[in-house]
Every structure is written in C-alpha cells, then in structure tokens.
Write a protein that binds this DNA or RNA. Structure first.
Lengths: 302, 302
DNA sequence: TGGCGTGATATCTCTAAACGTATGACGCGA
DNA sequence: TCGCGTCATACGTTTAGAGATATCACGCCA
C-alpha cells in the first residue's frame, strides 16, 4: 500500500463535474463558486498528469483518461461512505455482532423475552448464541470468544462484571407418586431422608453450593444418589423414582410426566440468574444488552 | 453522491496502523514521527465518531468499528491507485482503445505490418478494427465512431488531417488469355478498346476519378462494362472474361486463377494510401499510430 | 458587431492539518 | 522502585488548498 496521491474532495468535484459536464452547474451542486471548481479540477489534472476534460466552448466532455478514472473515483467514494456509515453503526452499537452464551435451562425462561426485546431494539445486530454451562462460559468470556454470558449464580471472577437478571425460588422436584407430592408446598427439612439427583458440581460450583447451603439451613446434608448433566435428565431420573431434587423455579416449564414440582419453604432460599461480561468491555453492544436486561427485570420479578 | 467526510491520507495511516498495530512501527513505515500519527488517528476517530483502536498499554487492537472501516478504506485506496494508474496509462497513450477503419483491400498489404508494429509498441492498447469503404469511413470519422481511417486517396475534408502511408503504381488486371498478358508491362493506351470492370464510384470517388484521369492521360475514356463492390469480385469478373481493370499494385496479393496482373506505363500514375484522423484529436493513441506510420513508411516505398 | 454564456486567470484570505520537538502518563518487568 | 516501552499531549511552524471576488478570453448568435 503506497501513499495516496489524490484527495477525496477534488475527486468528488471530479465525479460531480463528470455528471454535469458543466462547470457552473457542477459548482452549484457542490455549493461553491465556479472558479474554485476550475482550480480543483486543474490541480487534479496536474496530479494525474493528463487532462480529464476537454473544454471546447459550449461543451465540456470527459477525455479517455477521465473516463478511466471516473469509475474508480466513484467506487472509492461510495466505498468510503458505506464503510463510514457501517463503522458508525457498529461504533454506535446499532449494528455488529454480539456473542452471547447462556445456560441451557435459561432457554426456557429468561432467554426468549430477552432476545426478542434486544432484537426489536437493534435489528441490525447479529446474535451468536452459544449454549454453555457455567465453567465454559467463564472461560469463553476470559478469552473473548464470547461477549456476554447468562448463567446461574455470579461466577465471582475479578475481571468480570455481573448484573442480576432475575432471582428464582427453588422448587422441589418429586416423583408424582411421592407422599409429599400431595402438598402445595414442601418444607425443605422433609426431604432430609430422600436420595438426591443433582447436576455435577463442576458444571456450576456456585449454584451447586447454593443447593447444599439451602439443605444445610434446613438442617441436613443431602445424600446424592445420582448425578446428571442436564435438567431434563435430572427430572427424568426423579420421575423414574431414583430420588428427589431441588431446581430453580423456571425448570417447571419442562412439564415431564410423572414429575411434580412443588414450592419449597422457607422461600428465602433463592438462586440468581446473572449476566456476566468482561469488565470495561468497550463494545457498545454489551452495554445495550445490559440496558435491555435492566429494562426487562421488573417484568419478571413481581 | 455526497461530500466526502474523510481524507485519504489519514485513511492510509489508518490502514498501515491496522496492519502494524503499533504506533511507532506504523509511523516509521509512513515516514513520519509517532506523535503526528497519533494525531491523525485521533482526528480520524473524531470524524467517525467512535474509537477505531483500543490502546491498552503494550497492545493496540482494532475496535469492531475499526474492523468495519478497514476493508472499505483498503478498497478505496486500491481503487484509486489502480484508477490513477489506468488513467495515466490512457492519458499517456500506452493503454486504451483505438478505433481504426480500413479499406478492405489494405488488409492484404499495409494493414498487417502496421498493426504488428503498433501492437509491439503499445501492447495494452485495444484495437477496434472496422472494414469500411471510403465514404462510410469519412462519416465515421466525422461522428467520432472511429479515431483513424486508412483509405485510398485523401478524402479532402476540412476537419480531417491526413498523411500518406504509401503510394502504389497501378497494374492492369487481365484475363490470362488476353493477348496483352504475354507482355511484362502494358501501356495504358492499349486498353482503350477493352471493356472495364470497376468499383462503384460512390465507394471511393477520388480513387475512381484517379483511374479515369489515368485513362484520359492515355487518350481514352474507359468503357465500363461492369461494376463490383469488392476487388475480389472485380478480379473474378475479369477472370471470367467480362473485361479488364486497373487496380493498385497491392491487389496482386489476391492471386486468382485465370487472372494476370501486369505493370502499366507510364508509371507516373500512382494511387495513395492515406491515414485520416480528426484534426486536433487530442487522443495520444492517434498520434502514436501516426508515428508508427511515419516509422514504417520507408520500409515499403523503396 | 456587441451582448451572452462559459470557462480560465489573478489575487487575496483563511483554515485545517501535517509535521516536528519536547514532554507527560502509565503499565510492566527486572 | 526504577527504567523502559508505548502512546498521548502540548505547542509552534509551515504549507496546501479551499474559498471568495473581480476580471479576462473566447466562441456563438442575433
């Protein structure tokens, strides 16, 4: 790439003159007087080294050299105008690409309204969605393969900022044949002797610990009979009678046969859905997504 | 087309910096000090309205907006560099398109070496060749659908300039059975009583008149028994015994069976092949073609 | 032949910005 | 904690060129 020999202003004048083929009218369209236009064209011709127009009295026409330069000039001007507009759109956050990771269970609850609201406001932003559990999300945020993550419980990493999207109560997941399934609400302590089906702790340590804490507060340590990586599987195992479980309220949307979801007491035990992003990420799309979260928060936390 | 908001110099700096991702090295490549580069980039960012680079100590990187602008800037710079080079080539006459008309009979004689020499010297010039008789050539030169014409006898038009490419003697075209075919040279006067086969006068009035004049100088007016639009046909008709003809020496190349070409006396009667072009045509390709004609002229006029 | 239209020229002003030197801020690694 | 690398800032100089007005040159047509 070599140093540019021309400037855009004279090239614009050139293009306009090539369209008008009349110095007076072209100057008017450019909003300048006629002499400066003559000068600009002359300077341009000096730089090119050859005349670009033939000026016969009463008729201005392009020379072959001018005809050769015209399409290039036009393309360059259009490219730059388009590129500038695109850069502004991206810079202003009204266009671009935002990479969002989310925990699988959120696809049933907060994710759809969030995406719909965001898309309504920024239709020119392309969303790359990645379903990931907590640990991979943190890693992805770390090496910048993802701009924003939606996960259960704040990850507590120094270089990540978070905001709460939503807090949920826990529900007890019971086989429908379970004696407690006849009650509307289940005190946690009554589950002390049941075997538990839980997610592996590594998938989301903080969330897992929250469950253990809740049980501890109720006076027992859950006996884990089985682990499964997805809520779908956890609930299916519960339905098969392998045990009970504690799950965020949103899991109710799964509606599996043979599985009952019951509110638990005390209802002080809650779990958070949070958004996380790289601290000081200058990407305006991230800020916009956060704004959408802030706007929607009241709508699902009554 | 709207007024350009950017200039090329800063865009060039932007592209170089985007390649180097290092202000010091980019400045060195641009041949300037580092502070001016910082300023140019800052001004550019001000115009765009958003940062184009993230400057974290030890690392300079493109922002999404910068990534968006980069290809447009690169394309614009390349387009203009290419366009400028092309315009210069065309303006300097080393490239472009030259439209040449020629009389059909010249395709056998002067045209091939002329085109070969021209093409050797200006390989990037595209030649549009049109076979036309004299009158259409003059018309085409007039409305600029042709840049240069090659024809027999100067057209004598006020707005056309001409140069002689070549002068030729006339040869008698005889059936090989004709009594005069036994001679090496044929005095024109001996053809006084033969019927003539000639081109239509309208195809090239001056050339036609030249033949009539030659006969008049020999003391007779040719009796035209037949007209034909092409030399090929004229000679075929002569071979068929419909008469004799007078033709420029170059027609010998036709070499038809049953037709003899014989030199004529007096040899003062000659015909000119001329090139014609619009007076004051600024097209350098025309000038170059004329130069090639001038260079080649000695080679075929001994 | 004298206006009219068109473009070129002359001259002046003014500003943006290109560039340099000197220096400051800041994180990072020894 | 002290350099070092890296980029930003401050400030001054210089220049290209964009713009204006006034005027000239020239062909054309009434």
């Amino acid at each position: 790439m070599t140093r540019p020999e021309l400037s855009l202003a004279p090239l614009h004048a050139f293009v306009v003159l090539a369209e008008e083929l009349h110095f007076g009218r072209a100057a008017a369209r450019l909003g300048i007087a006629q002499p400066p236009l003559s000068q600009q064209i002359r300077r341009l011709e000096d730089k090119v080294g050859h005349p670009l127009f033939t000026r016969t009295p009463g008729h201005t026409a392009l020379t072959p050299a001018g005809r050769e330069l015209l399409p290039a000039a036009r393309r360059a001007l259009e490219d730059l105008a388009d590129g500038l507009a695109a850069a502004r759109a991206v810079g202003g956050g009204s266009a671009g690409r935002l990479r969002v990771a989310f925990a699988a269970s959120l696809a049933l609850t907060v994710l759809p309204p969030l995406l719909r609201a965001y898309r309504d406001r920024f239709p020119d932003v392309h969303l790359d969605l990645h379903e990931l559990t907590t640990a991979p999300q943190v890693a992805a945020l770390h090496d910048r393969t993802v701009d924003l993550g939606l996960l259960r419980e704040p990850p507590g990493e120094a270089d990540l900022d978070t905001t709460t999207v939503h807090t949920e109560r826990f529900v007890a997941v019971l086989p429908s044949t379970h004696p407690l399934a006849t009650r509307r609400t289940v005190p946690l302590a009554l589950l002390a002797d049941d075997p538990f089906v839980l997610l592996p702790r590594a998938a989301g340590p903080r969330f897992h610990d929250r469950i253990i804490e809740a049980c501890a507060a109720a006076g027992f340590t859950p006996r884990v009979a089985q682990r499964a990586v997805e809520w779908q599987t956890v609930c299916a195992l519960v339905g098969a009678g392998l045990g009970v479980s504690l799950a965020p309220e949103g899991i109710r949307h799964l509606r599996l046969r043979g599985v009952a979801f019951r509110a638990t007491t005390p209802d002080t035990v809650r779990t958070e859905v949070v958004a996380a992003w790289h601290k000081d990420d200058p990407n305006p799309l991230v800020a916009h997504f956060r704004a959408v979260i802030d706007d929607l928060r009241p709508s699902w936390t009554p």
